[in-house]
C-alpha cells in the first residue's frame, strides 16, 4: 500500500461521504431545545406563583425536569426525542438526567452495586468532573482578583 494510494483513498472518502442533514439538525435542535427550556420556564413560573423567590425556584424546577426525563427515559421515549432533536435534547438538564438514568437501567443485569451503582455516572461523570473543575478555577480566580459576585 503506497502512501499516495492511501492519501487518494482518504480524499475519496471525504468527498463521497454522505452529508449529515445539518440544516435539518439545527432546526430540530432549536425546536426541541427551545421547547424543553419552555417547559422549564412554565414549571418555574408555577413555583414562582407559589411564592418562591426566583433564586429558590430553580432547584425544584430542575428536580421536576429531571423527574420527567427519568420517566420518559424509562418509558423509552427520551432516546427517540434525542434522535430527532440531537443536542436540543442532550444539552438541557433533561439530557443530563437521561445520561444517568439510561446506563443505570441498562446495567441492571450486572447487579445493583457494580451494574446500576457503578454505571450511573459513566456518561454524566465527565460533565460533573469537568464542570466542578472549571467552577473551582473560576471561583479561585474571582477570589484572588476580588471580583464581585
Amino acid at each position: 500500500m503506497s502512501q499516495s494510494a492511501q492519501a487518494r483513498y482518504q480524499y475519496w472518502v471525504k468527498t463521497m461521504r454522505p452529508k449529515k442533514p445539518v440544516a435539518m439538525n439545527l432546526v430540530a435542535a432549536f425546536l426541541v431545545g427551545g421547547a424543553i427550556s419552555e417547559v422549564g420556564q412554565i414549571i418555574q413560573w408555577v413555583f414562582l406563583r407559589q411564592g418562591l423567590s426566583p433564586e429558590k425556584a430553580s432547584t425544584p424546577t430542575a428536580i421536576v425536569l429531571i423527574g420527567l426525563s427519568a420517566l420518559f427515559t424509562g418509558l423509552g421515549w427520551y432516546d427517540r426525542l434525542t434522535k430527532l432533536g440531537g443536542m436540543g435534547a442532550s444539552l438541557p438538564i433533561t439530557g443530563f438526567a437521561n445520561a444517568m438514568v439510561a446506563p443505570a437501567m441498562e446495567f441492571r443485569a450486572e447487579g445493583l452495586v457494580l451494574g446500576v451503582g457503578a454505571r450511573l455516572f459513566t456518561v454524566a461523570g465527565p460533565v460533573l468532573a469537568w464542570g466542578m473543575a472549571a467552577a473551582f478555577v473560576v471561583g479561585l480566580v474571582r477570589l484572588v482578583f476580588g471580583v464581585a459576585i
Partner: peptide, 25 residues
Amino acid sequence: GLSAAAGGIKAAVLFGLAAALVFRP
C-alpha cells in the same frame, strides 16, 4: 459548587436508581 447543584444531582441519582428498578430498556 456542589451545594448549589445538590438538588439536581441527587434527583438524577435517585430517579436513576428508581428507574433501574422499575423499567427495563
